[in-house]
Amino acid sequence: MTPALRTALVIGGLLALAPLVLPIVHLDVSIVSEVLLFAIAAMSVNLLLGYTGLPAFGNAAFFGLGSYGAALSIKYAHVHFIEAVLVGTLAGLVGGLILGPFLLRRRGIYFGLLAIAFGQVFYFIAYRFTSVTGGEDGMNFARPYVGFPNVHFSLNEMSFYYVALAIYLGIVALFSVVAVSPFGRTLVAIRQNEVRVRYLGINTDRFIFVALLISSTIAGLGGAMFALLINFAYPLTLDWHQSGDFVLIMILGGAGTIWGPLVGATIFVIGKDIISTITPLWQIFLGALFIACVLGFPKGILGSIAAFRDRRALVGAASAPDAQTPLPRGTS
């Protein structure tokens, strides 16, 4: 068993058992579902920003499209749970197909600004198109039946959590495979030196477009599940503040790491929940945390731990010069 698979089994096992300890710490299971869905959204940012180096500052657009895709299909087409998730996921993909060709034309900060601007377009559509979307009030709905034949019930909070967990672990598995594939290595190379990648005969636009589509689809899936978790879709899920939260979660946990988004989402969602019961000024604490993170450990929590381990390994290798210790790796 590889170390990566062992880590996955341990974390997956802990998450599967999490509902057992929640009553002890007075947390509701739905908040852990929210952690997983925010981790999924942060992973969609991670693929673009953490791996490929593209400032994905507008991924809430895809997340919100997923939310509205699910909500609108439930409200107007009376679809089941599974279909609503599929519609929301497809809405994210379609969003990527529409925005991708424009975003592709820019790099660096201009990519980020363009992503924010496009996201705001969707935000204002949802905000203004009151007759369909409910505008500022959003749209609520009852969680529909699952969608299997002869299953006449909707998911309760506990079963919803396990569905969210299965989806989250599925995306982790996808990332684990893609990250070490030639495609994933090419994305990392694009982050480091796009010109060189092109001079190795690779059409980087094509890679970035596919990364965008994967990212927007994952964000759409996360957004659809989020709407179904809270039985509600609202314009702020499309807003650039929401995009900023996803970026913050990713950076907090560790850019370019598999588990960083989960660590970041746990701190973000649960921290927000706890602090907001004490003071309405929870955003101050969040801001302070972000500043501390960027200044103190810019590689994020998991990135810093990995760097610390690598340094220790390096010291060990230096004291035993014959040892064939592999050198530290910045990106794996």
Partner: peptide
């Protein structure tokens, strides 16, 4: 113009994948 944070081995891998039409593999 290189990939500074990758190993020599990985720096060379990409072009070989590219030429073999394998860079796009997931």
């Amino acid at each position: 113009s290189i990939f500074p944070e990758l190993t020599v081995h990985e720096n060379l891998q990409l072009g070989i994948w590219s030429q073999a039409g394998q860079a796009f593999r997931l």
